[in-house]
Design a protein around this nucleic acid. Structure first.
Lengths: 400, 400
DNA sequence: TTACTTTGTTTGTTACTTAAACTAATATTA
DNA sequence: TAATATTAGTTTAAGTAACAAACAAAGTAA
């Protein structure tokens, strides 16, 4: 049973230290006096916490600020080079790896194709990707604080990969493999959850408490932020909204259900339809690029397909809005490239079919981090976990 | 801007007092020593908190317990008669009111039909319902701690009724009306949210952190519990899962969308189909009772209808499971009476269409509180709010 | 009767925030 | 230029609450 956290002096200090740290991290540079005013904490308390944080290398004094009629303030700022993190996006036919500082700035990036989905081969590629990045890390107090990996599949609460349909993996303990090899803490997460995390921290969903990130690639995955927290469901496998039924008498899906949304609104759906209309060469890996170029040229047959795709995406978004009433929905992954052609039909469907759309204030946005959102999110899993272990987390809920 | 809660001694005390109180409330009767062991708090701390709680009349000493080889323990128990709450379920053609103690035990109950849905008339009926119940409250330290009201519509974050389609109400400030008239704190909530609250506290969802309550009546509403907290969405109108598209080319719904789940799986859907098959007398208010009796008699035409209804409910439940991966789904409101005939088809659809690993972990249950769940949940809104104001809430999240 | 247990209270210590007094360093004004 | 006001940050003393340890109270076991 989970040990209950009781209140004591230590907890108070943890809370206040976290408040000071995250205030400077998010709103810095700030002086001690400004932090005191912003947080409501006493100046003395702020001073104590700041000096500890400086000792721990998380905060830097970056010099004097402007006086406003008295002594000059000493400005404080988050030392985002106190450590670095590795984030890996494992796709079905590629691996994308990033090395970031603690603010999520990309320092180094590697991409390599995957020739097959054999577990040993892919793990080998992941290892060499991590190795490359780790070897390039600048000198810093904490070094590599962790590795985060986003995979296209269901990840259980113990970070075990339960099932990754497109990779044909089941029950893979990738976390342990990485930790054993590199002796660095590892985090494994679902690709869409990682993308949601990335967008919420650094991208189109910055500081939005309730959002749904819809990752449209070969299939459709979703990442759900509720009250500033990623919702993972009872056993860690929520957000399989690509498999919700939008036509209960529709086509059969490989998941066993019928009329799943992703059969109508994914990259696969687009390519399949294009193929049936003899628009594509079989077995060409760059089919999506081809459609993109054709769309840019104004190929009316392709534009028609994209229009239908947009409408089909819209049907699912209505369901998401009715279910979650989120502040923002972010559309990400490869399909986001087609923004210019799918945005209008999506909005048209919402206006036609969701009368409260205008009142609901829900914002439909497209990914800001593009192809990096999963890798960045994965890296930030590792960063968050590092701060959580150092007890200066942002997750201490405000208690009213 | 929301004022940030910083850590101080007072917060520590609040946390620990809440822990002591809620431990006794949920697991009592317990001695001071047992509470100390269960919570990890020092014996001295527990003693201090208990004596304050006794002074405030929330805890009682109920006598000596059994010795286990030493001094006899003094057993402590929640004084659930320290105050009372009123809960009201406003239906489309009825009002149900309950008077409960602080543990949700029903002390008094009133039900009356609604002859029309005119706002003034209904508010008048609500007032006289409250008055009846308030006049019957036993003597107690705190008296009536609050009134909770569940309504079939969307309720905003300030407790304003935004839209109740079946009552044809818009922007009603019922909370203020009640508070002005009775000088008692009032809480307004969506009917399905209240039902979810009731079942999670006292019924089929007791102590389950992640659950979805599906209220199937004239329409379908849902209440979502995530991490022991009711999820209300960004503007308070989440959980409109009745308007989830399960057939995007299907029948038009009054909401503007097409193929909404509630067009196939609600009481209305059942009655409409029965009516088309000439099974019912027009304009008979007790049509649902009639179908229930016919089902009991084994009328095969009715059983066929219920079979289809169950399947249609199943389609929507698949969506809920894919979206939320909850521990439990609870089916409530009037349709729950037909449990014996719809349970099998629901389960059959889930088995057919949902991969095994999902299904094995989510429990499909039926309401345990029956017709009272909304009224009881509404009452507990008021009770929770009372405890929140007294700072002995259960909502202080465990911080890892 | 004696030894041992268990319950619950009292006492002194510790760790934390805070207000207030203080030092430091600047701008304003006469 | 010197006096005054203002702002930044530190030090000091006071207060609060949890805790460990010692204690008192009330039982069982032998």
């Amino acid at each position: 049973m989970k040990r209950l956290r009781t209140g004591d002096q230590n907890l108070v200090k943890q809370i206040n230290k976290s408040i000071v740290f995250n205030t400077i991290k998010k709103k810095g540079p700030l002086s001690r006096a400004q932090v005191s005013k912003k947080t409501g904490l006493n100046k003395a308390t702020v001073s104590t916490m700041v000096s500890e944080l400086i000792n721990e290398a998380f905060i830097h004094e970056i010099g004097a600020g402007k006086s406003s009629g008295g002594r000059k303030p000493v400005m404080l700022y988050f030392n985002h080079r106190a450590g670095y993190a590795v984030g890996i996006d494992v796709g079905v036919n590629y691996i994308l790896g990033v090395l970031t500082d603690l603010s999520g700035n990309v320092i180094e990036k590697t991409a390599s194709p995957l020739r097959n989905i054999d577990i040993d081969y892919v793990v080998g590629q992941i290892f060499s990707c991590i190795e490359t990045l780790v070897n390039n890390v600048p000198n810093s107090p904490y070094g590599i604080v962790g590795v985060g990996i986003g995979v296209p599949g269901q990840v259980g609460q113990d970070d075990q990969i339960l099932f990754a349909p497109n990779l044909k993996w089941r029950n893979i303990h990738l976390k342990q493999m990485v930790e054993k090899k590199f002796l660095i803490p590892a985090k494994i997460g679902n690709e869409a959850n990682a993308g949601a995390y990335g967008e919420q921290l650094y991208g189109a969903g910055k500081n939005i408490s309730n959002l749904v990130y819809v990752s449209i690639g070969i299939g459709i995955g979703t990442g759900i932020f509720i009250n500033n927290r990623l919702y993972k469901g009872a056993t860690g496998i929520s957000g399989e909204m690509g498999h919700f039924t939008i036509d209960f008498n529709g086509k059969k899906c490989s998941c066993g259900n019928r009329g799943c949304w992703e059969l109508y609104a994914s990259e696969s759906a687009l390519l399949q339809e294009a193929s049936q209309q003899k628009l594509l060469n079989e077995n060409d890996e760059s089919n999506l690029d081809f459609l993109f170029r054709e769309a840019q040229k104004g190929n009316s047959q392709v534009l028609k397909l994209l229009n239908i795709l947009g409408e089909n995406i819209g049907f699912g978004l209505i369901n998401i809005m009715n279910t979650f009433n989120p502040e923002t929905i972010i559309i990400g992954n490869r399909i986001a490239r087609f923004k210019n052609w799918i945005k209008k039909p999506i909005e048209r469907i919402l206006e036609e079919r969701l009368p409260v759309y205008h009142q609901s204030n829900t914002d439909i946005r497209f990914s800001m981090l593009g192809d990096d959102s999963t890798a960045l999110g994965a890296a930030s899993f590792a960063i968050s976990s590092f701060f959580l272990n150092r007890k200066i987390t942002d997750r201490l809920e405000s208690i009213s």
